[in-house]
Nucleic acid binder design. Structure first.
Lengths: 351, 351
DNA sequence: CTGAAAGCGCTTACAG
DNA sequence: CTGAAAGCGCTTACAG
């Protein structure tokens, strides 16, 4: 199956040196070995002439470094994760590392299976996205691999200065709480000219099993508390379907008890709510202002276009990979929180 | 970096056999080697006791099979590809193979870079999605790897019985042409009760560099020709932005020259067109019926919900992987075309 | 600065 | 059915 290709011995012969020297020139290991410039030159030319590509298999076996990284994702079909993967992958590639993508579908059994595969492939490190929805058992399984790892998303129970339970892995995440607070305050203030009464803002919350979602709900509560207003949080599963259901319940109330603004924990929920508002003939944003979260590509093209919170998804992936590389290099690393950005569009425009 | 783990020698010692026997029990190679049931039993127990996981690196080096497959994607952020990847990945995993995901962003340079990496990793085979937008040079680069490969998407110039240019790889794809024809006929017939005049259907076409898009345009033309009606094809880049631009030009015409139905080559285009219809106060579907292509998750939650063509994306990925495995096994394989399914929703509902 | 050699952990003819 | 041994293509102390 493997095409006949040049090996290190071929290059050594062509350059008139030993295979050790070829290795030293072409793969300067951890502590680079001195090689005379003239020899290095000859080796490089020989390698080019033979179109030599070192065998990652042999290299990994000999060096105890596979150059492979495990990248765990709950669901590749969720547009959030491919962006993260891309950020991680770009950086990995520039370091000569490859990503082994593991799509767990949020299933602990599949995660465990993958960890076994990754062990067999001797990956050098792990980057685990969806860290905010891992169970204690999942975290334990990760810790047990003994591999250096980084989480994307704050694991349940962890704070900036206290790791979660068994696992001492660092994590990177977006500041969901602060961004949710900003989105809520934007809605509160956006009813009309300065001095108008604040809107009645309700929150469509995502699954409580994800810290991402509970952090967004917390940010909403922060803002409501600060404004001295009652919070109203409706639990959902985060889907557009459930957004419709939840919004319908809310918006069918008599006008004086009805929220006139909704901060939704996901764009999907917001899109569901938008559909219901249209069905009920409630003008958006006048009768109902809406802000989602995630900045789905299509949100800008809806009528009205959807306000949202945009996350630096690629940077999350890149940052996680940077931390993983640092851990591989033996450096100490700490959690990292990146800011998110409120994107105001027509669905919450000030009138 | 690699945790201390049991090796084949540990298992052999524990089971009181040679490492050759362990290998034969745990890794029945191409032609399985006979082993006595009792011995096999002992080996398996020893392996379990030691929690032994064979080193894929060593195995690959010795057997000339890495168990790695290159999976090339133009753009992981496009929701179409993760689904394909998932279908391929599921099947790969069940065969003990891992996928190395290569995100080319449609760039030939990146593709070439990746092919080098994949060569270094000694992948056993290649699955290349986005086959419909590869240039002749790209196809040549793929053929030059000497690896068995499968394309997802009909390569330019290929037909069911004639491969494209230099490359003899089989391909799998959806029957874009037939599905586009069906969507167009649906629009033509959907103006009202039987006997009503057909709608004037225009087509928003995607980039001509993708056979997927030209096939959809061809299907539209087929249907228009068959109905004896003039075709009107507007070129776009496939994005929602460009859908808005193209639809605006079309829909601003005087009523008697304006299409009253649009078949868009992508859901993105259709969503752009839907936005314009709303802006112009044209009721959908009465004044403008709309059908897209791709079945984006959010289409069902728009108002009106978007008619579209759904593809068996996971099956495409699985089918491609099956062909790749067949090629690996030395079997001859032929191209495969899967049907797509018209999904009628409110945007093209019969009145 | 360079090389000979051991070793990484497996698979697979070859011999029995 | 089982084992001893060569070999896969590298890296890396060790010696010079």
């Amino acid at each position: 199956m493997i095409p006949p290709v040049a090996t290190i011995a071929d290059v050594a012969r062509e350059a008139g040196v030993s295979i050790a020297t070829v290795s030293r020139v072409l793969s300067p290991g951890r502590d680079p070995h001195p090689v005379s410039p003239a020899t290095a030159q000859r080796v490089r030319q020989a390698a080019r002439r033979l179109d030599y590509v070192p065998s990652a298999l042999a290299r990994g076996l000999a060096s105890h470094r596979s150059g492979l990284l495990g990248f765990v994702v709950p669901n590749l079909a969720d547009p959030h994760y491919p962006l993260i993967a891309r950020g991680a992958e770009d950086l990995a590639r520039s370091h000569g590392l490859s990503l082994l993508i593991c799509n767990t579908l949020g299933d602990s059994g599949r995660l465990a299976e993958y960890l076994r595969v990754l062990r067999g492939r001797q990956v050098d490190a792990l980057v685990v996205s969806g860290g905010g929805s891992l169970s204690p058992d999942d975290l334990l399984a990760l810790a047990r691999t003994g591999l250096p790892g980084v989480l994307i998303g704050r694991p349940a129970g962890a704070t900036l200065d206290r790791p979660a339970g068994m696992i001492a892995w660092p994590w990177v995440s977006v500041d969901n709480r602060a961004a949710a607070g900003a989105a809520t305050r934007h809605l509160l203030g956006g009813h009309g000219p300065p001095g108008s009464p604040p809107r009645r803002v309700a929150h469509l919350a995502g699954p409580a099993a994800q810290t991402t979602m509970t952090d967004r709900a917390a940010g909403y509560r922060d803002a409501m508390l600060q404004a001295g207003l009652p919070a109203e949080v409706v639990a959902t599963d985060g889907s557009a379907e459930d957004g419709e259901r939840a919004a319908r319940a809310l918006l069918r109330r008599p006008p004086d008890q009805r929220p006139d603004a909704i901060f939704a924990a996901t764009d999907r929920l917001a899109i569901g709510a938008l559909g219901v508002a249209i069905d009920l003939g409630l003008p958006v944003p006048d009768a109902l202002a809406l802000v989602g979260f995630d900045d789905l590509a299509l949100g800008a093209h809806l009528r009205p276009s959807l306000s949202t919170v945009a996350q630096p998804a690629e940077e999350l992936g890149a940052a996680a990979l940077r931390l993983a590389l640092a851990r591989l290099a033996g450096e100490a690393v700490t959690p990292l929180v990146l800011p998110a950005r409120l994107v105001v569009r027509a669905s919450s425009a000030n009138s």
